[in-house]
Amino acid sequence: MAKRHKQPEYSAAERALIAELDLGDRTMIPIRSLVDCSLVRLFWEDWRRSDARDPMWIATPGDHDENELHRVDGWPEYGDGTVERKWSRRARLWMSWFSIDAWHVCDWLVNAVSDGEQWLWNLDDAGHPRKLTKCGNLQRLVHEATKGLRQRNAEVARQIVLGPNDERFMHDLGVGHTLVRLCSRAALRKEGTLMHHCIGQGSYDDFLDDPDVVLASVRDPDGDPLATLEVRGGYIRQFRARANAEPSEAVKDLVAGAADTFGWQDWRDRPGYRADNQDYGPEAVVILRDLPPPRRRG
């Protein structure tokens, strides 16, 4: 880590990625050093390899649908602020491609710190957990996160018993599926535990008292969660399946009707969304992307 910190641009890269993770201080502060030696390290190394090929342009990774070139040098002809602009741009692109994996890793780190996992004290010579520093790519880090969360979440979920005021029916999605509003910290905790994502780790608790925020769960006929929604001010910010994966086409089709009924819109359509962010997809909007234009705006 020390060598990376000697790089004049490393701090700008770190700040940019932390900002794009957008976890809030309550979640980020306890795991900041772990994020730095895992996600930030891999983010930095990815871009060093990219710069060795072309420091000005990068193509959309091959496992994504788009086939575009993106400029990533910070537009030095625009004057001051090139470094900050460059790494802000790179962080937005990287998160548009890898946000699901990045948030999954953060969920794991939050739980590991909360539970005092033993591996946190197995350190390398630089003082960083070996479990993180041995991961040479994002896929390996995600594998460790998935393995670490699986057993813990199953046990915790069994211990959470909800009462009648913890959840509220919102909408009949058809074929036995329902949309349920999460109304309490216990409901968030159980949802996050079963779905292997961070909604139950405290960073969303304050939204429970905000009338402009809807936190909801898609349930199958047996009442088991299939996907989780976050809607802010009528704009869908996140829509994620288990382990922050993209919901199936069947689940997206079910929820599209609810989005139409409630008039929910795409996060990118919100006031103040900047045009220069247009190729940074919203954190998780996947329903509205597939709807015809007249329905997207409700």
Rank of each mutant, 00 (worst) to 15 (best):
I18P: 05
R181E: 15
P293Q: 03
R15K: 15
Q201N: 13
L149T: 12
V285P: 00
Y235E: 03
P294N: 03
G174H: 08
L226H: 13
G116D: 06
K252L: 11
A13I: 10
R181D: 11
N277L: 11
N67D: 07
H143Y: 11
D73K: 11
D51R: 03
G74Y: 14
A52R: 11
D276S: 09
W57S: 01
V142F: 00
D80A: 15
R297C: 14
R26Q: 12
A245D: 03
W94S: 04
A243E: 08
N165I: 09
W108F: 15
V83D: 13
F98R: 11
D279A: 12
S38A: 14
E246R: 07
D224S: 06
N111D: 11
C135T: 09
P282V: 00
E117H: 02
D253R: 07
M170N: 02
M1G: 13
L162R: 05
G116W: 10
Q238Y: 10
E249M: 15
Y273S: 05
G223D: 03
A126K: 10
A19G: 12
G116K: 10
V113K: 01
A243M: 11
W94C: 06
D224C: 04
M95Q: 02
L229M: 05
Y204C: 11
F98P: 04
L141V: 02
V251P: 09
I31Y: 04
M95S: 01
A91M: 00
R15F: 10
E14R: 07
V35S: 09
D290H: 07
A187V: 06
C106Y: 12
T146I: 12
V35Y: 03
L132F: 01
I199E: 14
S248F: 14
L34W: 00
V72S: 01
G234I: 04
G223R: 02
L42Y: 04
V105L: 07
P247H: 00
F169S: 05
V214M: 07
S33P: 12
A256L: 03
A102Q: 05
R85C: 12
M95L: 00
V214T: 09
R189P: 09
Y235I: 03
G200P: 12
R242W: 15
G136C: 10
A145Q: 01
E144H: 01
R240L: 06
K3N: 14
E84A: 07
W103R: 04
P282G: 00
G257W: 01
A245Q: 08
K6Y: 15
H196F: 14
F43N: 02
H171M: 08
L42N: 03
W97T: 05
E68R: 13
H104K: 12
A91G: 01
F43G: 05
H5W: 14
N277P: 09
Y10G: 03
T133K: 05
Q139K: 13
K190N: 14
R189T: 08
K86Y: 08
A259M: 11
L226Y: 07
M1S: 15
G116T: 10
G148P: 09
W121H: 05
D46R: 08
L162F: 06
R41K: 12
S11F: 15
G272D: 13
N244M: 05
A154K: 11
F207Q: 07
P30M: 00
M56I: 15
M170T: 04
D25V: 13
D124Q: 13
Q151I: 09
W121A: 06
